[in-house]
Simulated assay, not measured.
Amino acid sequence: MAINKPTVAQLRAFLALAEHLHFGDAAAALRMSQPALSGAVAALEDTLETRLVERTTRKVLLTPAGRRVARRAEVVMAELDRLVEEVRAVRGPLVGPLSVGVIPTVAPYLLPIVLPRLAKEYPKLELSVHEEQTDQIVAELLAGRLDVVLLALPMPESGVTEIPLYDEDFVLAAPAEFELAPGSAGVSRAVLNDLDVILLNKGHCLRDQALDVCREVGARAAATYATSLATLVQLVSGGLGVTLVPETALPVETRRAPNLSVHRFAAPAPHRRIGLGFRSTSPRAGEFETLAESVRDAVAETGFPAGVRLA
């Protein structure tokens, strides 16, 4: 006699619910409607003939059976994802679906020069891009919902292999009327001691990197924060303080900020390293090395200034 078995869609829906313990958040993570997710979980309960979740007015709780199913489902889905990745790896480099996570302080400046190259070199690549802050895309990577991420190194989590791409200096952006007297070799980091440094909101790795530079020289951060690098530069242009801008962002952001002056730091300039990260257990390491090489080639061909160096 045939036995009903859970479907992949049911298991994915239930695992998302087990992770978020909220139907709305789980549905958003899977990019599906809440009724569809609720229906998939209910169908799984019917298939297994047992209650997996306890629905309250405020949150969702797993039943003892639900906790056991979640543990088993994680193993099943990890093996299924691995099977798919192994098959893709055999077909050839950068063929078929590839989900990439990118942080907001890289995406607008790097993707326009990388995506056309990938489309030309790998026409069978089915690329999807998801822009989120570092913690979110790393969590999505480790959960198997992203294949590879593009962000500032080092990685905040273990179990991820890094491929360095390039280093880029930070540049000091200030209102045009600010009187800074750089030497021929550039401004000293110590100049930050006399200025209010505007930062991005919490969650952006660029905020943390800027804070590290400030701490090195004992500089203070201003009480003004921004949700994006574009807004940050506009606040500086409006005279609210200064900020640190990655070299690759300058061509885009300075065009939209008329009252802005740009000053490069004396060597060694503060900088960040941008790279790829993928699960250390992924069989697609060779593909990601190929992807990294394409990104480096695209960066090299753009003619970025000396403040950007291939890793």
Rank of each mutant, 00 (worst) to 15 (best):
L172N: 01
A174Q: 12
A176K: 15
Q136T: 14
L229M: 15
T243P: 01
F170D: 03
L151E: 07
K202F: 11
E162S: 15
A226Q: 09
A230D: 13
V160S: 00
Q234K: 14
A185K: 11
Y122S: 04
H130A: 15
L211T: 06
A143T: 05
P164F: 14
E140F: 14
G144F: 08
E140T: 07
E126V: 14
L110Q: 07
P182V: 10
T161D: 12
E162T: 00
E131T: 15
A119Q: 10
E157I: 12
P112T: 05
T227Q: 15
A143Q: 07
E177A: 14
I163G: 06
P164L: 11
L235N: 11
A223Q: 15
L118Y: 02
D212H: 13
Q133F: 05
R189C: 08
R207G: 00
G144Y: 09
L111A: 00
V106Y: 11
Y109R: 00
A221L: 14
L125P: 01
I137L: 15
V149Y: 08
A190N: 12
D194I: 05
A139W: 07
K202W: 07
L110D: 01
L195H: 01
R145G: 03
A173R: 04
V217Q: 09
L235H: 02
F178I: 15
L165T: 11
A226C: 13
L200Q: 10
A223D: 12
V191Q: 00
D169I: 04
L151D: 13
Y166L: 15
L199Y: 04
T105W: 05
V242W: 01
R207C: 05
C205L: 09
